[in-house]
Every structure is written in structure tokens, then in C-alpha cells.
Design a protein around this nucleic acid. Structure first.
Lengths: 209, 209
DNA sequence: GCAAATTTTGACCGATTGGACAAACGTTAG
DNA sequence: CTAACGTTTGTCCAATCGGTCAAAATTTGC
């Protein structure tokens, strides 16, 4: 595991944040190999050697970014609560995921980029932490099904399809806007999506009469 | 527009195909900027200058690949037929899309890469051909809804969610397999996905009693 | 206010990259 | 057979890249 966090001055904390913010922008639009340190440095408003004073290697930036990302990314699923009303829980899970796609599209794209390339840097996390979390929540959902609270389906593929549909509005945003056109592709598209997804998943999951 | 197709010798046709096949492999796993001409040349079993004899610039390979891709990619949607039975038509559309994710994951990832980066090279096609096709099919679906053949929803977002869920099994394959684990993540995962998606979409779209 | 520590910069380096080019090699048609 | 054409290769180049380094500028602790 990591050693104890190194002591950091005020300037170091500020500049590191600045760099991570700039790197998020650059990495998420160009991918890791498609991004250059110069680009990130310029976006952060500093020179390349100066940036390298805070992060010694390009990979270190990416790594730090990914570590932070995964936690926020899984938070919505973590909140899925065994105790609450099943349909309400699932509805707010979908809503939270869609809000993340709307409010943090760069994070979504960064993640998508990583997975697309075979997840070379986070494979252990996927097989470990992520799998464990999904298995746990799948068991919760299975419990709801057994109790007749929601219709029976495959909980894993249900989760996949919630991920897929919500993240689609971040990752494929340009396509969504291109297809919807200037009128329907405006700010309202996320509300339309929310209505549609609620109907698709929640109505579809209501227990069969 | 392009001039008339240039005359090509037998060797040129064969070698160009070889290069495109190799480039599909390389581009889809590393992205455009993440791939080098050397990599593609090696995968195609020829030297870099030799490859550059057939495609003068790296971009030309990518461009050719994207042009071919879009047609095959849209073919399933093109087949969605006004005449057929609505639920049957939608069911086979979903099945075809999922089969493409299974059989042509590299093409799917290549496309995803392009969109993720803002679709710099195919934006006009998205706003033109793609939008026109989707609008046309959305109208077909709307007709089915008006006729009471399927439940009412937003046809555009319905199409998006079919794209998202099916392509997810190609683009996020490593994540899917990591989460499902060695047992459930084997070859059967596409059949499980097919069953799940059919239930989600088709049952969800049955007209309300 | 000053010495020590931290931050910033410009100059530089080796490796990799996309691509050019001419010469060598093969193929094909008459 | 041979001349014209098509193909392949080795060598080379300029640009870009990630990263180093020592010196200069700045901030900090006392």
C-alpha cells in the first residue's frame, strides 16, 4: 500500500489541484496517450518543467486522477440501500447516475477511455473492489425479487444496463446532440432522458400483477 | 466529393485489406493517437515505408476505416421495417445490435473512441446521414405508438438506450467480464444479456392493457 | 531582515514519431 | 528477353515527446 501521505505546502496543494483539473480536461478529451504534458501544463497555466515539479511523471497524474475518480464513481451504487423501498431506491440510483453523467461528463469519459483500452491501469480494482460491490448489490436486488417487490431479472445485467444508458449521455454526448438536433438537443435532453429511463426501468420492474 | 476510385492492382487490393485489418486491431485498442504506423505495419507483416506506399498518411487509414464502419454500423437500424410487426421488429433490431457487439467488438470500440473524442472526423456524418436515419426510424416507431401497437415513449431515447446497452457489451467488455467473474463471464454472457435486454425492452414496450 | 527551503524557468537531451526518398527488387506485357 | 511498371527496403529527417538539470526567483520560518 501507499506510504503515509507526503507533507505538502499550501502552494503544492493548490497547484496539484490545478494540474489535476487541467489534466482531467485534457485526458478526457484526448485519452492518455493522446495528451501531452505541454497541453496539460498550458491548460494549468504553467510551464512544463514546473508541472513536472509537482508530478514527476505523466502517469502519476493519470494515476492520481483515476484513484479519486473510482470512489466518486461508485458512490451512487454504494448508496443503494437494502432497507428502503426497492423501486424508490432504484429510481434514485438511476437519477443519481444520470446526474453524474450530466455534471461530470469529463470523469465519465476518462473512465470510458480507460475501460475501452482494456483497463490496463485499473484491472485489479475492477476484479476486486468493483466486483465485490456489484455482487453485494446484486444480492440485495435478488432479495427484492425473491420478496416479490420487483420483477425477476438478472441483477448484474440490470446494473450494466443502468450504467450503459446513463453514461451514454456523457460518453456519447456529441452523438446524442447531433441526432437530437439543435431543438431537442438543448439543455432539456437530460430531463427527457430521465423521464424515458424511469419509464423503461421502473415501469419495467414493477412486479407482474 | 471523392474522384472516381483509383485503379488498383491485385496486390494493392490485397495489401490494403491486410493493412485495414491490422489497423482496426491497433486503432481499436490504442486509439488513433495512441497507435503508431510501426505497430500497424508490424501487425500487417510489412515495413513502415511499405505500408506508407499503400496509405500515404496515417489519417488516410483511419478515414478509410471509419467510412466503411459507418455503413455496417447503421445497417441494423436501416433494416427496421415499417411493415413488420412492431415488437418483432424491435426484438430483432436489439438482437442484431447485440450480435454486432459480440462479433465486431473492435469496430464498436473504434467507433466509441471516435465519439468519445468529440467525433472530430465524422461530425458531419452524425449531423447528416445518422440524424436523418434516426429521425426516419423514430417516425416509424411513433407511428406504431399512435396505432397502439407499442407503449408510448420517446423514440429517440429508446434508440439511444438500445445503442447504449448493446454496445456496452463490446466497449466495456473487460469491465463486464471482470464483474461477472470467470464463471458467469464466459461465453454465455451474451445470451444472458440477450435474454435480459429482451425482457427489459420488449416486455416494457408491450402496450398497456 | 535573512538564511534556508521551496518554487519557477530556460536550456537541453535522448527516444519516438510520421513521413520522404531514392535505390533495389519483382512483376508483367509485348 | 526486356523495357516499363509496380513493389519493397534502408536510410534519413524534422518535429514532437517525456523528462532532466542547474540556476534563478520566490516564499517561508525564525
Amino acid at each position: 500500500m501507499e506510504g503515509s501521505a507526503p507533507r505538502r505546502t499550501r502552494i503544492q496543494q493548490e497547484k496539484r489541484e490545478l494540474i489535476l483539473e487541467a489534466a482531467l480536461e485534457v485526458f478526457s478529451t484526448n485519452g492518455f496517450r493522446g495528451s501531452t504534458i505541454d497541453q496539460i501544463a498550458e491548460a494549468a497555466g504553467m510551464s512544463k518543467p514546473n508541472l513536472l515539479y509537482y508530478f514527476r511523471r505523466k502517469e502519476d497524474i493519470h494515476e492520481t486522477l483515476m484513484e479519486r475518480l473510482l470512489e466518486t464513481w461508485l458512490a451512487p451504487l454504494r448508496e443503494l440501500d437494502d432497507i428502503g423501498d426497492p423501486l424508490t431506491e432504484l429510481r434514485s440510483y438511476i437519477r443519481r447516475k444520470l446526474e453524474m453523467a450530466r455534471d461530470f461528463p469529463r470523469e465519465s469519459r476518462l473512465f470510458a477511455n480507460e475501460i475501452l483500452q482494456g483497463a490496463p491501469r485499473i484491472m485489479p480494482l475492477l476484479e476486486g473492489e468493483l466486483k465485490a460491490l456489484v455482487d453485494e448489490k446484486a444480492a440485495v436486488i435478488k432479495g427484492w425479487m425473491r420478496a416479490g417487490k420487483i420483477a425477476r431479472t438478472d441483477p448484474w445485467h440490470l446494473i450494466f444496463s443502468i450504467w450503459a444508458t446513463t453514461q451514454h449521455y456523457a460518453d456519447f454526448d456529441v452523438q446524442v446532440r447531433a441526432v437530437l438536433g439543435p431543438d431537442r438537443g438543448g439543455d432539456g435532453r437530460f430531463e427527457d432522458a430521465a423521464r424515458f429511463l424511469e419509464q423503461l426501468f421502473i415501469d419495467g420492474l414493477k412486479p407482474k400483477g
